[in-house]
Amino acid sequence: MAVAFDSENPDLPPAGPPAGRAELLVRIFGPLLLLGSIVGGWEFLVRINEIPPYILPGPGLVVESLLDNWHSLYPSLLVTLRITFLALAVAVVGGVGLAILFSLSRWVELSLFPLAVVLQVTPVVAIAPLILIYVDNITLALLICAWIVAFFPILSNTSMGLASADHNLRDLFELYGASRWQQLLHLRLPSALPYFLGGLRIAGGLALIGAIVAEFAAGTGGTGSGLAFRILEAGWRLEIPRMFAALLLISFAGILIFLAFTALQHLLLRRWHASAASRER
């Protein structure tokens, strides 16, 4: 049975023009324009009202301070990022591992999930001092704090994704005698991928927040200090532009983490998932 696929064939998928270039321009330049207006307005207000820098430094001064203090801020950024990514890695391994365990055993899910919820709903800022008391190693304590906040979105989203595999596909796998391992590998994990990536985007930001909160609670000085300590230090010395500079670095780090995971999501899902694929018009 040969079927000719031509323009007359009703079976052919509808053809459409490529995604609009205008949308791409708006997507890039829209936020940049808005950001530029805010920064410009901020500089203008500071200058026109002659606000002293120890109350509110202008963006120009903040950038200047960032460059001047790069030698101390950059190592601190690396410290914070190290904690963030370590916590995220542990959250991914633990969250995905536990979600797989939940999908394989209802008993394990019923027993452990409430505990995971308790961890999630308890504010990290409240537990951080306790963790710092009980754990001698500061890096490990910071890691635990950041992990607590980053872990839950990964666990929750991946669990939901693993459970969302199409029921007919599950029947098909059963019909062809697929083992539990084959079902997990070829059906449940791919079904869970969009959910996991959504969780990862949230967890990336939360891991950074967790690391910063833990650093605030720890308040340690020295060469191994993160950006939160630089903010505290600048506050004590009334170096407000430096404080803003550290804040700016944290924001940039958060934005970069978000963009990196968004790009990863796009890369992995663009051919098949509605959330990442462009819509023909």
Binding site: N168, H186, W272, H273
Partner: peptide, 17 residues
Amino acid sequence: RGDIGFVFQEPTLMPWA
């Protein structure tokens, strides 16, 4: 196994493959 083929009402394809 494999001697029975099943076609569902929906195509039931793996969208990622």
